[in-house]
Design a protein around this nucleic acid. Sequence first.
DNA 1: GTATATTTTGAACATTTGTTCAAAAATGAG
DNA 2: CTCATTTTTGAACAAATGTTCAAAATATAC
Lengths: 193, 193
Amino acid sequence: MRSAEFDKEQVLRAAMTAFMEKGYAKTSMQDLKAVTGLHPGSIYCAFQNKRGLLLAALEQYNRDRGNELQGLFAQHTSARAGLAAYLTHVVDECVSCDPQKLCLTQKALNELAEQDEEAQAILSEQCAMWRNALCSVFERIAEQGELTGTRSPLDRARSLIVSIYGLRTFAHTHPEPQVMRDLGAQILKDVCQ
Amino acid sequence: MRSAEFDKEQVLRAAMTAFMEKGYAKTSMQDLKAVTGLHPGSIYCAFQNKRGLLLAALEQYNRDRGNELQGLFAQHTSARAGLAAYLTHVVDECVSCDPQKLCLTQKALNELAEQDEEAQAILSEQCAMWRNALCSVFERIAEQGELTGTRSPLDRARSLIVSIYGLRTFAHTHPEPQVMRDLGAQILKDVCQ
DNA sequence: GTATATTTTGAACATTTGTTCAAAAATGAG
DNA sequence: CTCATTTTTGAACAAATGTTCAAAATATAC
């Protein structure tokens, strides 16, 4: 027997950022070799092929983001304050223009959704998990009496996801940071109304 | 002298759909040859290279979409009714799952924005044109007294763009058509409020 | 310590990639 | 018709692509 030398999470995070910066198609095995420090054979031994590495990276990214979101909301007793902080966080990521702060799920959704059924299934499920998490948040906000209107938490969660996807795409046109912040504030208003 | 044999618009529309379906990186010159009916040399003679063909296709797509939008709004004397029809149209495109009804601007923005400065400049300008067109729409809606609240037409236009970008990305997870329609209806409400 | 099993290494592979080019064809001007 | 110019053709190119493989290295089990 012999166990792998490399740290799988570390390798997947390196691959993640490569895929985020260049997209899946334009990220070459050379890039992946350089970024992960693994030789081609090791990558194929551990992940089958380039696509396997992507799928594994997608799962890792989803885990990381899930933990990040949970940690952020744990810091606030007011669920609505947590949501505000979350939206601010998303806007800050958009404004930073740091390719490492893009969303791999969204990037993959746009690049591969209509091309790769298996990737699409994974991404759809991840999106559903995200929606459920946000749905719980709106349920908590409702319990705390911070919600106007009659929309269901599920509807609100979906609207919020749509808005965040939209924000990230819109950010690629490099609008002024204040514009992005205003958009974020408006989304918060609309979705809690 | 000798003029080109092919119809430039027709070639660009063929290239457009190829780029929309597969993305820029994954669309090969072979694909483009097959779709446009042009031999490699002709493409290079007319558009410099693959990237030149993309940039030309982006411009053509923008012209086509601009005309489409103008035509749609011309059918309605009530600007708000026009906006409702427009949103319904966008949702229908999303629901159809037809790769030919994707938005090339959005696809390119997601794939190339952080990679190709020139493409990004073109796309940012096209996005600004779209924003201005929608801004005019909101001004007309305001004149017709169909707007609640105090938000400026420009802010509303930006929010609408964000929402439409988001809708198109969200659609890749294949939600039920009714969900998409509800999201569209909610966006219309929020943005006119 | 030896044997076994698995990973690592890195060169090599066949394809596919975007691009070029020279010859042939065809257009329009005079 | 003739000339000049430009496009079309399609084979060919070098470079880069994802992948494979056999040998070497090394960790674990006994």
